[in-house]
Design a protein around this nucleic acid. Structure first.
Lengths: 221, 221
DNA sequence: CTAAGCATACTTGTATACAACTATGCAGAG
DNA sequence: CTCTGCATAGTTGTATACAAGTATGCTTAG
């Protein structure tokens, strides 16, 4: 029982389910959504379904066609690079702010996450989750709710590209080292350096992702 | 006649009208929206109205209350600072990218905007519009559509705070000088410097806005 | 055989009716 | 007098019926 009961309306459930399917690629990019069929499948009427669809359109997780009708946006490889860049900009800001606001307790927390991260560096999925945990914690310390919101949106979008950007062991080691350096920069109280480290770290991830993709394409074609 | 017919459904019209009222503060912060009354006023049924409302909630221009019912979000002065920071991060990224991609023609375009801006520096409203035109052009040159989207959202939000942040003549002169320096940094092809100039420029605007607000409050209380 | 026009089926957009839920005020017990 | 419980009015959430628009395939003229 959450402190705030948190409205659990049908439209919300449908929204969550559709979002899950989109991010997991269960709903394939390019696929069109027909309201009556989907409503039947999800056991609701078209009204709450439409509400969920509209919301997903706002979040760029569905696309309205000029002719009327919605489709799952196609994956555009060039977009990955853009998303990483925006994430870099936002995380850079967060690192800067976190640096200015972090308490000793916050620093302990970050180092704790780092330690857990180090223990899991060889497992791709867990390592990624821990990495996200670190960034999430920094976001919290930074205390800029708008930055947090945009960061969440970008992260959701990137989720769809997960399959393209599988990390290598080498890349994970590098990321861990960069995370360590970032936390130490925050601890040192140098906001410029913290911002730069965060930016470069994410941009490094971007480059790795772009290479991974062009590699796959190059091999395939 | 636009090349793309651009679906003009009732829900879209309602969306635009509500957004206009929210941004202009015609709908006052804290005010609740009752669907039947608003639907009658806008001469549509509740269905398209609700669709518009949902979309505005997604964009954080309306707020859903836990109990059910939507209100116009209250203006929180602390939020202005957050919004400026996010804008700084995004514009900084855009400046960096624009620097890497700008063609000679692009540079001419930017300098042209600067010239028009200089001519209007004493008129607060026009100066602001020209300033936005410059940033919009840079966004276009940067060619990161996601950054552009987020930038638009932040700009919309800031619109609501316009009344608080009236610029002074001194501030406008300073902004013009910074814009000139930014364009020259882009022209010089130094992405780091361009990014830093854009960041510092917007952060300067943030500080001015924060001072203006605390000044008003200090004087009032 | 090709292409234009039309009829038809289907999809989305809107209105309205109904159900579930929330808040407010009053009555009555403590 | 205060607080609890309930009745009632009003609001939001959902379903369904209808209207408007879109695409598809057939028919027919060239």
């Amino acid at each position: 029982m959450p402190a705030i009961p948190a409205r659990n309306t049908g439209a919300h459930v449908v929204y969550a389910e559709l979002k899950r399917r989109i991010l997991s690629l269960e709903l394939k990019p390019g696929e069109r959504i027909y309201e009556p069929a989907m409503a039947t499948e999800l056991q609701v009427s078209r009204t709450p379904l439409r509400e969920a669809i509209r919301r997903l359109i706002s979040e760029n997780l569905l696309e309205q066609q000029p002719t009327g009708g919605v489709v799952v946006p196609v994956l555009d490889e060039a977009e990955i690079s853009e998303l990483y860049e925006v994430r870099a900009a936002v995380e850079s800001l967060m690192a800067r702010n976190a640096c200015l606001k972090a308490t000793p307790a916050d620093l302990d927390e970050l180092r704790g996450i780092l330690a857990r991260n180090a223990a899991l560096v060889e497992f791709a999925d867990d390592a990624m989750k821990q990495g996200m945990a670190l960034h999430a914690r920094i976001a919290l310390i930074a205390g800029n709710s708008w930055a947090g919101r945009f960061h969440d949106q970008v992260s959701s979008q990137m989720e769809r590209y997960r399959h393209y950007t599988n990390s290598t062991q080498r890349r994970r080691d590098q990321a861990l080292a960069q995370h360590r350096a970032l936390v130490e920069a925050i601890a040192a109280g140098d906001p410029e350096q913290a911002a730069n480290m965060a930016f470069d770290h994410v941009m490094g991830a971007r480059d790795a992702a772009v290479r991974a993709i062009s590699g796959k394409n190059g091999a395939a074609s």
